[in-house]
């Protein structure tokens, strides 16, 4: 069991780093501009990420499971670890890297190594979702920008009352953002362990069974929440006063837009609703929140007249799209080879 938990540790590390970095996208401006205290932000993020992961995290997790059904724990360990290492090195290089792209690259590396068939329909669906993430976030932020502008230009409200409303809205949007992050990105943390979960179903009372997937989602969600609480403060402060210096209202628009995108790509209920109405379903795919944020900020730039679009940053995203899965895939392939031939562990069955 201890060995099994050790193999799970790479996923938990991934969750921890995701929490440390991505919570800043949700509460960075609010905390950086002192609208919301860090403790409040950390508690709300932690609780809602966990709730999102537990209640609605199964959809995107299933998609990653479908891309590569890793049936050996050491293999899952390597896939998760190499994705995490890729994120670390790409972050150091200053690229707005996505955990989703890293984990997909690592899974593809495993597929090649194990000779498993890659489901290209799933892969195209995932790649399409990545492409649409910043675009959709930009569209949402343009719409929200004009909506907020129209409201603020036509209401007569005291500055302090408006400030209070914005503060409350930032908290609510942050809770929604944390929930969306949990439900969408939990797949990156535990998706590869779905077929090899070290847990067994636990019967709680007469009616309730805590399934091994739910336990996996809980640990994954908890690792993200711990990442938020233990390490996200500095990142939040950097975002609040650094490159993404936004006003509280624009921060609210950015959080809402990027969170809506994550929600769209993770909600099973929404997908079922669209199918029931005979409309095309939105695929359940883990997407990058950071790239959603960049898209949303660009959207505001467009809405303001296009002068503020950071084309260099957008270029970096495109490079990240190509480089992240490629690097993660190659690293995963090499690491699987070492794990199999040096440490003599079965990385696929």
């Amino acid at each position: 069991m201890i060995l099994k938990l050790f193999y799970l540790s790479s996923g938990l590390f991934m969750g921890w780093s995701l929490g440390a970095n991505d919570a800043a996208n949700i509460f960075g401006t609010a905390v950086g501009t002192k609208m919301v205290r860090f403790t409040t932000a950390a508690i709300i993020s932690g609780v809602f990420i966990l709730l999102g992961a537990l209640l609605s995290g199964a959809g995107t997790t299933g998609t990653l499971g479908a891309l590569g059904a890793i049936k050996a724990l050491p293999g899952a360990f390597i896939v998760s670890l190499t994705a995490a290492l890729t994120i670390m090195s790409m972050t150091k290089a200053g690229l707005p890297v996505s955990t989703s792209q890293a984990i997909v690259g690592s899974i593809l590396g495993w597929n090649f190594f194990a000779g498993a068939t890659t489901d290209y329909t799933v892969l195209y669906r995932i790649a399409g979702a990545w492409l649409f993430t910043p675009i959709l976030a930009a569209l949402f932020s343009v719409g929200l920008y004009f909506l907020f502008k129209a409201i603020l230009e036509n209401i007569k409200i005291h500055l302090f009352s408006l400030d209070w409303i914005i503060k409350l809205s930032l908290i609510l949007a942050g809770a929604f953002g944390a929930y969306s992050l949990g439900m969408n990105n939990i797949a990156n943390v535990v998706g590869v362990f779905m077929s090899v979960s070290p847990f067994v179903d636990i019967q709680v009372g007469d009616y309730f069974v805590l399934s091994s997937l739910q336990q996996l989602l809980f640990f994954g969600g908890a690792s993200i929440a711990i990442g938020v609480i233990t390490y996200s403060k500095n990142v939040m402060m950097t975002i609040g006063s650094g490159i993404y210096r936004l006003s509280p209202v624009t921060a609210l628009i950015v959080v809402l837009s990027s969170s809506l995108v994550l929600f769209l790509f993770a909600s099973e209920n929404l997908q079922a609703g669209l199918i029931a109405l005979g409309l095309p379903a939105i695929p359940l795919v883990p997407v990058s929140q950071s790239q959603g944020v960049v898209g949303a900020i660009s959207g505001i730039g467009i809405a303001k007249g296009g002068g503020n679009i950071n084309t260099r940053l957008l270029g970096k995203i495109v490079v990240g799209w190509l480089l992240t899965p490629l690097c993660a895939g190659i690293l995963s392939y090499i690491s699987l080879f070492i794990m199999q031939n040096v440490f003599l562990q079965k990385v696929f069955i």
């Binding site: 501009t33 002192k34 609208m35 500055l159 302090f160 400030d163 209070w164 006003s247 509280p248």
Partner: peptide, 11 residues
């Protein structure tokens, strides 16, 4: 009271 932190210096 941490009111209007982004504009309190201006105020």
């Amino acid at each position: 009271y941490n009111i209007a932190p982004d504009s309190r210096a201006d105020i």
